[in-house]
Simulated assay, not measured.
Amino acid sequence: MSHTIATATTAAKPKLKTSAMIASIAGEGQATRSAPFGHALAELGRHKQNVVGMTADLGKYTDLHIFAQAFPERYYQMGMAEQLLMGAAAGFAHEGAQPFVTTYAVFATRRAYDFMHQAIAEDNLDVKIVCALPGLTTGYGPSHQAAEDLALMRAMPNMTVIDPCDAVEIEQMVPAIAAHNGPVYARLLRGNVPVVLDRYDYQFELGKARLLRDGAEVLVISSGIMTMRALEVAKALEQDRIGVAVLHVPTIKPLDTDAILREARRTGRLVVVAENHSVIGGLGEAVATTLMRAGACVPFRQVGLPDAFLDAGALPTLHDRYGISANVMADTIRGWLA
Rank of each mutant, 00 (worst) to 15 (best):
S2A: 13
H3S: 14
T4S: 14
T7C: 04
A8D: 12
A8L: 13
A8M: 09
K13R: 11
P14F: 11
L16T: 09
S19Y: 01
M21L: 15
M21I: 14
I22M: 07
I25Q: 04
A26W: 02
T32K: 00
S34P: 00
A35R: 15
H39L: 09
A40Y: 04
A42L: 11
E43P: 00
G45S: 10
H47W: 00
H47R: 14
H47G: 01
V52K: 02
T55C: 15
D57P: 01
L58N: 08
Y61T: 12
Y61E: 11
D63T: 13
D63H: 05
Q69F: 00
Q69W: 00
P72Q: 11
R74T: 07
Y76F: 15
M78F: 13
Q83W: 10
Q83M: 11
M86Y: 08
M86C: 15
H94G: 00
G96M: 03
F100L: 09
Y104N: 06
A105V: 03
A105D: 01
F107M: 05
A108F: 14
R111M: 02
A112W: 01
A112P: 04
Q118S: 13
I120Y: 05
I120H: 05
A121M: 04
N124V: 01
N124K: 13
L125E: 02
L125W: 10
L125G: 05
P134T: 11
L136N: 08
Y140L: 15
S143L: 08
A147G: 02
E148A: 10
D149K: 08
L150I: 15
A151P: 01
M153T: 15
R154F: 01
R154K: 13
A155H: 07
A155N: 14
T160E: 07
V161L: 09
I162V: 15
P164T: 10
I170M: 09
P175V: 09
A179K: 11
H180G: 01
L189N: 13
L189G: 05
V195G: 08
L197T: 12
Y202A: 04
F204L: 10
F204W: 08
A209E: 09
L211K: 09
A216D: 15
E217N: 15
G224Q: 10
R229Q: 14
A234S: 13
K235V: 06
L237W: 03
I242G: 04
A245H: 02
H248D: 13
V249Q: 05
V249A: 06
P254R: 02
P254M: 01
D258G: 07
R262H: 12
E263M: 03
E263T: 02
T267V: 07
R269P: 01
R269G: 01
V273I: 04
V273N: 03
E275S: 09
H277W: 05
S278D: 03
G281C: 06
G281P: 05
G284S: 10
A286V: 02
A286P: 01
A286I: 02
L291C: 04
M292Q: 13
A294G: 03
G295I: 03
V298I: 10
R301N: 03
L305H: 11
L305P: 09
P306W: 11
L310C: 08
D311Q: 11
A312T: 14
A314Q: 11
D320N: 14
G323C: 08
M329Y: 08
A330H: 09
D331I: 07
T332P: 00
I333S: 06
R334M: 11
R334N: 07
G335P: 01
W336C: 09
A338H: 12
